[in-house]
Nucleic acid binder design. Structure first.
Length: 256
DNA sequence: ATGGTGGTATAACCA
């Protein structure tokens, strides 16, 4: 079973890319972020044509998340229970017995800003909620655009992307570490210790061509799924297509 | 330090 995460940066613009990628990569489950669509405009009929059902939580212009799956999605949860948030950043569902939590983590703008404080608060709320989810659903995958690069291997220039920089700051990385300490494992790192494999490249400065990227799109698997995690990676191909998202899909494969 | 690009309430704002 292949499970993926992709920040599409506008599903309206990227639907043809998504359809092409679904047809070639053939994931069983995909978490999408930054759909930037109200629910009434979600292209669920087109995706049925591609063989996928959709559950989604969107808004105009910003944010928006969805889970696509070949098998039905059950027990759908939108948002973090008990955490008031206008921004559509969280959707969870159970597919084929596996609980999928899809996150569009707050970007945070710059260290010390109000948005940064919101990011840290939001991460703490996610942490407390995931602790409960793990009790109810030991077979859990937390995936998404984390807007945090776990360590120095995951950035092209550790001198710039340091302890004081947004997406790599100590407090952000501590937030991710605390989440993982609940019993979640970065699937990519179960299979590789290479540096320089990224999932996001800025549109500016020809960053993709020069591989000036970060690995901020993650798939985390729970203790109970760890032994079934047979492979993980990042599919750079859609980032090479014309008018791409700035993110590439990150994926994990679970064996039987 | 700035600004570069791309998305969308097409003007700022967000990333």
């Amino acid at each position: 079973m292949k499970i993926a995460s992709w920040n599409v940066n506008s599903l309206n613009v990227r639907l043809p890319h998504l359809e092409q990628w679904l047809a070639t990569f053939g994931p069983d489950i995909v978490g999408l972020q930054e759909t930037k669509l109200e629910d009434s405009r979600f292209p669920d009929a087109a995706l049925v044509g591609a063989g996928y059902r959709s559950v989604f939580a969107g808004q105009k212009t910003y944010n928006g998340v969805a889970i696509l799956s070949r098998a039905p999605a059950e027990d759908v949860q939108v948002g973090i229970p008990g955490f008031e948030d206008e921004q559509k950043r969280v959707i969870a569902a159970t597919v084929g017995g596996v609980r999928i939590v899809n996150l569009y983590v707050v970007n945070g703008q710059d260290v010390g800003t109000d948005k940064y404080a919101y990011k840290l608060r939001w991460l703490e709320a996610v942490h407390d909620w995931i602790a409960q989810e793990l009790q109810r659903h030991p077979e859990l995958v937390v995936l998404g655009d984390f807007n945090i690069a776990p360590d120095a291997r995951d950035v092209h220039d550790p001198a710039v992307w340091n302890d004081d920089h947004i997406l790599t700051s100590t407090a952000e990385r501590d937030g991710l570490r605390r989440l993982c300490a609940l019993g979640l494992h970065d699937a990519f790192r179960l299979h590789s210790d290479v540096a320089g494999e990224f999932s996001w490249w800025d549109y500016r400065q020809a960053a993709f061509r020069r591989n000036l990227g970060l690995r901020i799109d993650l798939t985390l698997v729970s203790d109970a799924l760890r032994a079934r995690c047979v492979a993980a990676g990042i599919d750079r191909e859609p980032r090479t297509w014309e008018r791409p998202s700035d993110h590439a899909p990150a994926w994990v494969e679970l064996g039987a």
